[in-house]
C-alpha cells in the first residue's frame, strides 16, 4: 500500500466519522509540517504550535479535499496558508527571538561556529523579506528546489515563482554583502 493509498484510506475513514484515523495522517506528515513551520519562525515550540493549528485546519476542511492534487500538495498548501496568517498576526513577536549574535566579518580564519552563525543570520534575513518573496524562498528550498511543486503549493504559476525567487535574491544581496560574503555568490540562476 503506497503512502497515497494510506492517506486516501485515512481521509475516507475520517470523513466517515472516525476522527482517530486522522492520527495516521498526523504521524505520517508531522515531520514535514513542523519543519515547514520551523522555516517560518525558527522556534521549536512555535513551529509545533503552528503545525498543530495547521493539522486542525486540515481536519476541519478534509471534506474539501477532492483528490485533484496530491494529498501532500494539498496538505502543504493548507499549512502554508495557516502559517501565512499566523505570521501576519504574530511576526513581530517572533523575529529576534533566540537570534544569534552578529558575527565579526573581519577577514581571518572562520570557525565552524562562525559559519553556522552566519548561515543562521542569512536564514533569518529571509524571514524579514516581504511575504511573497519570503514564502517563495522558504517553500522552494523546503521542496528540494523543485519549482513545479513549489509553485503548486504556493498556488502561483511557475514563471511567477521564478521571478519572485530572482527578486528575493536581489533583496538579500545587500544583507548578504554586509556579512562579508561575495556578491558574485548571488548570481546563480534559478533553473
Amino acid at each position: 500500500m503506497t503512502s497515497d493509498d494510506q492517506d486516501a484510506a485515512a481521509v475516507a475513514r475520517v470523513i466517515a466519522g472516525d476522527p482517530g484515523a486522522f492520527g495516521d495522517i498526523v504521524r505520517r506528515w508531522q515531520h514535514r509540517l513542523v519543519n515547514l513551520a520551523w522555516r517560518f519562525c525558527r522556534h521549536h515550540a512555535t513551529a509545533e504550535d503552528m503545525a498543530q493549528e495547521a493539522f486542525l485546519k486540515e481536519y476541519r476542511s478534509l471534506g474539501s479535499f477532492r483528490g485533484e492534487s496530491q494529498f501532500s500538495t494539498w496538505l502543504t498548501a493548507v499549512a502554508l496558508n495557516t502559517y501565512r496568517s499566523r505570521l501576519h498576526r504574530e511576526r513581530p513577536l517572533w523575529l529576534g527571538r533566540e537570534a544569534p549574535e552578529p558575527v565579526d566579518t573581519a577577514p581571518g580564519p572562520q570557525t565552524a561556529l562562525e559559519q553556522g552563525q552566519r548561515a543562521e543570520i542569512v536564514r533569518r534575513a529571509v524571514l524579514t523579506l516581504p511575504a511573497r518573496y519570503r514564502n517563495a524562498i522558504c517553500v522552494y528550498y523546503f521542496e528540494g528546489r523543485d519549482t513545479g511543486e513549489s509553485a503548486r503549493v504556493l498556488g502561483i504559476p511557475e514563471g511567477t515563482l521564478k521571478a519572485r525567487l530572482h527578486r528575493a535574491r536581489e533583496l538579500l544581496r545587500p544583507r548578504f554583502a554586509s556579512l562579508g560574503l561575495p556578491l558574485s555568490d548571488l548570481q546563480t540562476e534559478i533553473p
Binding site: V26, Q30, W38, Q52, R123
Partner: peptide
C-alpha cells in the same frame, strides 16, 4: 552559490514525542 548552499542545507527539527497526542 553560498546562499543556495546555506538555504539548502537547512537543519531539520524533530517533532516532540507527544506532538501527535497533542494534536489528536
Amino acid at each position: 552559490d553560498e546562499l543556495d548552499e546555506i538555504l539548502r542545507s537547512e537543519e531539520t527539527i524533530e517533532p516532540s514525542p507527544d506532538f501527535v497526542s497533542s494534536v489528536m
